[in-house]
Design a protein around this nucleic acid. Structure first.
Length: 430
RNA sequence: GGCAAGUUACCCAAGCGGCCAAAGGGAUCUGACUGUAAAUCAGCUGGUGUAUGCCUACGGGGGUUCGAAUCCCUCACUUGCCA
């Protein structure tokens, strides 16, 4: 991974007297345990953890908030434990809407590997406060049901478990909740206890929607070990227009380049709403306060230049992928969206840009409909014809006005740029 | 274990023998206006190049019927009440 330089370049903003101040300015602390004690605890290097459950083959943008929060704490001198949920992934945390479908063990094991691999790119696993990777399957699978019930279950009061939002929401919905998912909070509490015992881990970070599961651990440690440990919960990222953050065309933005290309990642951030872009810079980049405040001014004074969005897109794409890939995505974006004369571009630039896009190899004279389907820009021939009928398709920036149109007008290097709508582009190689 | 209600497309939800590829809403998508923004307005949204066709789809399987999302049986799951 080419992210070593990227990691090395990251830093916290030293103008803040305390990391908690920076977290608050960045809007990263939605909830926490007692702030005074938290600040005191963070004055010395501590070990903390954050867990990631394998519910998919890749982490997504929601997880990125956690990864970057961990990295900020690492930069402040603390020791991160990145936990992958080999055990909790087999159980499943309660979603607000419905019971999860259990994945089989092989799938979960595979996803655990993938998540661990992704984690390694965002934290430094070398040096004096190197991050470490742990898997809760390591201590959970040793437990017999009897031991679990006697040693752990005895510390949990059902009344309290029922009162947790994640559980009560489900009890009050017509989906109900299984004992399996109901038990999830205990598993997570056990994780914290184990990490406390094994690594002297005294803090956990996570999303605020996980608050009930986070406090499960602090309560358990308090009961069993008589010790107060700490929590920081990051806010759920929401868009100003009320739509769900982290989705593009209804699909999640993944951190895996196979699932979401660097170009798609760049485009996603570039399209950030003015009303959200400054908040995003605070949460998703390591830019310091002065730099972000400068960009905030520019959003007000010259919004059409979209400098904040450009900066955000480049920064995050670099963090998730690499500087090279971020720059390629930026250049491709500039070439394809820019002032617009595709014919002025030389073959090499054009080919490089098109490789960033979904693309396909086709024969000269291919129908536009077939090309749309081939590149994955639409899902079926019918959808392709519909898109053309709606005036949403263009080839080399020239609108296609017939469903029977074919492509025989090529750009330098025998390529063509196919577009569906304004933002979905694909490359055609002949 | 018993009884009752329920399981419809991405989500919510109507339909209760043919007029159902399935109302309505949300969401996505497209167009106009723009700054690759927001808001607003308009339109599309199962597949198949065009067939009163065929295929897929109303939880799974089976049946009744000329015809089933709709009726029956059965299995699974969900919720509620009773034990």
């Amino acid at each position: 991974m080419a992210t070593k330089e990227t990691l090395a370049a990251q830093s916290n903003d030293q103008s803040f007297a305390h990391i908690v101040d920076e977290f608050q300015w960045r809007g990263l602390m939605a909830l926490s345990t007692d702030e005074k004690e938290l600040r005191e605890a963070l004055d010395e290097p501590i070990t903390f953890y954050c867990g990631f459950d394998p519910t998919a083959p890749s982490l997504h943008l929601g997880n990125l908030v956690q990864l970057l929060t961990m990295r900020r704490l690492q930069l402040a001198g603390h020791h991160p434990l990145a936990l992958v949920g080999g055990a909790t992934g087999l159980v499943g945390d309660p979603k607000p809407t419905a019971e999860r479908t259990l994945n089989d063990r092989e799938t979960v094991a595979l996803w655990v590997e993938k998540l661990a691999e992704q984690n390694r790119r965002f934290l430094d696993f070398e040096g004096k406060n190197a991050a470490r990777m742990v898997n809760n399957l390591d201590w959970t699978q040793e437990y017999s049901a009897i031991d679990f019930l006697r040693e752990i279950g005895k510390h949990y009061r059902v009344g309290k478990m029922l009162s947790k939002d994640a559980v009560s929401a489900r009890l009050n919905s017509d989906a109900g909740i299984s004992y399996t998912e109901f038990s999830y909070q205990i598993m997570q509490g056990l994780d914290f206890l184990e990490l406390y015992r094994r690594y002297d881990c005294v803090m956990q970070t996570g999303g605020s929607d996980q608050w009930g599961n986070l406090t499960s651990g602090t309560d358990l440690i308090h009961r069993v070990e008589g010790k107060s440990v700490h929590l920081i919960a990051t806010p759920l990222i929401t868009n100003a227009d009320g739509k769900k953050f982290g989705k593009s065309e209804g699909n999640a933005i993944w951190l895996d380049a196979e699932l979401t290309s660097p170009y798609a990642m760049y485009q996603f951030w570039l399209n950030t709403d003015d009303a959200d872009v400054i908040d995003r810079l605070k949460v998703f980049t390591f830019l310091h306060r002065s730099e972000i405040e400068e960009l905030a001014e520019k959003v007000k004074s010259e919004p059409h230049l979209r400098e904040a969005q450009r900066t955000l897109a480049l920064q995050v794409t670099e963090i998730v992928h690499s500087r090279e890939e971020a720059e390629s995505a930026r250049d491709a974006s500039a070439a394809l969206f820019g002032s617009g004369d595709l014919r002025a571009l030389d073959a090499q630039t054009l080919a490089a840009a098109l490789r960033e896009l979904p693309n396909a190899r086709v024969q000269k004279g291919v129908s536009v409909v077939a090309a749309l389907v081939e590149t994955g820009l639409v899902e079926s021939n019918g959808a392709a014809r519909r898109a053309i009928a709606q005036g949403g398709v263009s080839v080399n920036k020239i609108k296609v006005d017939s469903e029977e149109a074919v492509i025989d007008d090529l750009l330098a290097g025998d390529v063509a740029v196919l577009a569906r709508g304004k933002k979905s582009l694909a490359g055609l190689f002949f």
